[in-house]
Design a protein around this nucleic acid. Structure first.
Lengths: 361, 361
DNA sequence: TTGTACGCGTTATCAG
DNA sequence: CTGATAACGCGTACAA
């Protein structure tokens, strides 16, 4: 930037030059006949300025279509009124509701949400975190706990407060809001077992660097083991969270002998995909095979049969995350870990097992 | 900011002080024993620096966990490597796929995407545009064309290039990439008519400030009028894009006399909701009433019966928007309007009308 | 190849 | 209540 100011002003007004330059504080100040300080005050703390001046300034702002330069503002005030969130994906609706609630609560408090995606890749996530930190975010929301220590180091050095959502951090060092993925999976499995099922298969999400997926598997295993049942390959497979992957995975499971009577899915997208796959195979759900999901997103209700699933309090989770973060940013003492309750939503995709095996005792 | 630099350094190293300050260029420079200019060069144009220096600098960057301050960088360079997008909502999947493609193409070119939502509210949209402009975005993506002139004025004054997606701008002054919402709706309706339907109802999206929704209605009307049929209240209703609203709306339509044999929906979410509503009423789809959607999102495939719908090239639209924008930012001459093709995806929610009326001729 | 010095647009202190 | 002015962190002409 070596242009002298005079040169720049000329350029700004030049008809030939295509690049427009946005009006600045001093443009507004000049037009309103006041100092830049006054304009700044008018914009940030209107009460500290006389009514008359305020009106002149606002008129000038209007006329020029002035928009404050965010970077400059953040630079000078050392606050960005921005928080970031890195979510795995926007492609399916898993995170949409929670994000929306997060955004609503934040913007009600005058702060903007920046959303970035990691595609379930921890390196990409670290990159996004870096970018967001560079943008001067005042706080950060991350999904789950599983990620390289280096990412946490980055955060620690930055001093930016963050909260992990979707999984409670228990004794861990981080601030979190979530629910017990494992316990809920266990409860769901117990429900399945209570329906008489004993040959259980699972389509899990990819568990590498995904603690929610891993916990859900652990929960299912826990409930099964309590009855002396196990869950090993090929009765458990991992699949990416997409309809296609679910449909693909279920085809393998349906071919097994003995064939499972129920398929527990790591989330609703997989479950909906499984139903599609079974339909292609001409296998009736839930008559021949039951299917259950996890998360209770829109898809669960629309699928036919509608999915029995774990109801997750998406909106409350997003809201709680926002509140936690707002507290930390404001240096208010806040609860370290918020644990929310889940419940089982029974719909028709789970049936009592038809050919109940003879009781074992 | 009146802290003297010395005071600040003390503060920065103080054990007592909780607020950490991120390392800056000069911290890196000091540690590496070079000037800030050299660090800056190392980061932006590594080739212009000797290998030895470069390595020292990079080591210092690593050690301090330095992340460039985005605002400062944008301020100094007058480029942000950022484009913004304002979409109506993230709650349903309508915009997800396109957004994902947009993001992928942009980030492949080293630029970050900022997403904001407007909740289908033009004032909120204007606010978000303002915010994004303030953030110094290099380009902007907006959905559709319908919005107050004031928003366009804002953009014009800012000189920031933008592209409208989801609707072609035809002769309009704006750059766009989309498809002909009206023509596709018309084609879909002709398909419906070809299936023998004559009593047609529609659940449209809210058309106020939503040209896509309005165009779709126009398309349906056009096809009907060609056969001397009309589409007036109470056979057409508007509903917000949610399952609940769709379910609610269809209940009114099912009560009409004569009852429609087909319900054309403004999008898949509404159509899926309609199916849910009809199910509650015990009305068989498609045997008693057919339902068709628009957009071809995941929901369309999962719904039962699966939705006959207008297939929209979401990903190609996102990619094309990114390319257009990249061109405009780079001052390359680009096509003003990109129009993509749609197609009809036939699935089982559309059936031939059962009680075909006697031909009129 | 490297260092010096200034400006980017804003906030905030301090003096009027 | 208002104005002058020093930071904020970085990029870049220009000099060395």
């Amino acid at each position: 930037m070596h242009r002298r100011r005079s040169a720049q002003v000329a350029e700004r007004n030049s008809v030939i030059d295509r690049k427009k330059t946005r009006p600045t504080l001093s443009d507004v100040a000049r037009l309103a006949g006041v100092s830049t300080a006054t304009v700044s005050r008018t914009l940030t703390r209107p009460a500290t300025v006389s009514r008359e001046t305020r009106e002149r300034v606002n008129a000038a702002v209007q006329e020029l279509g002035y928009v404050p330069n965010f970077g400059a503002r953040a630079l000078a005030s050392n606050r960005s009124n921005t928080v970031g969130a890195v979510i795995p994906t926007m492609e399916n609706a898993i995170f949409a509701r929670g994000l929306q609630a997060l955004e609503e609560t934040l913007s009600a408090n005058g702060i903007t949400l920046l959303v970035a995606t990691s595609h379930y890749d921890v390196d990409a996530e670290a990159g996004q975190v870096r970018t967001l930190l560079g943008r001067g975010i005042d706080g950060l929301v991350l999904i789950g706990e599983a990620r390289p220590q280096s990412t946490y180091d980055l955060l620690a050095r930055s001093g930016v407060p963050y909260v992990l959502v979707w999984n409670p951090n228990g004794d861990g060092p981080h601030c979190s809001v979530g629910f017990d993925n494992r316990a809920a999976a266990r409860t769901m499995t117990e429900e399945v077992l209570a329906h008489g099922h004993r040959r259980v298969a699972m389509i899990a999400g990819v568990t590498e660097w995904n603690d929610r997926a891993a916990e859900r598997v652990a929960g299912v295993r826990g409930a099964l083991e309590a009855l002396g049942l196990d869950l090993e390959r090929p009765y458990i497979v991992e699949a990416a969270y997409s309809l296609e992957a679910g449909a693909e995975a279920v085809k393998g499971l349906a071919r097994l002998n003995p064939r499972p009577t129920v398929i527990i899915c790591g989330n609703d997208v997989l479950a909906a995909g499984a139903i599609l796959g079974l339909r292609e195979l001409g296998i009736a759900v839930p008559d021949a095979i039951s299917v259950v999901g996890y998360d209770d997103i829109d898809l669960a209700e629309v699928a036919t049969p509608a999915l029995t699933t774990v109801h997750v309090p998406h909106r409350r989770m997003g809201k709680a995350a926002a509140e936690l973060l707002l507290g930390m940013i404001g240096n208010v003492e806040v609860r370290r870990n918020v644990v929310l309750e889940t419940s089982i939503t029974l719909r028709s995709s789970l049936a009592r097992v038809a050919d109940a095996e003879p009781p074992v005792w």
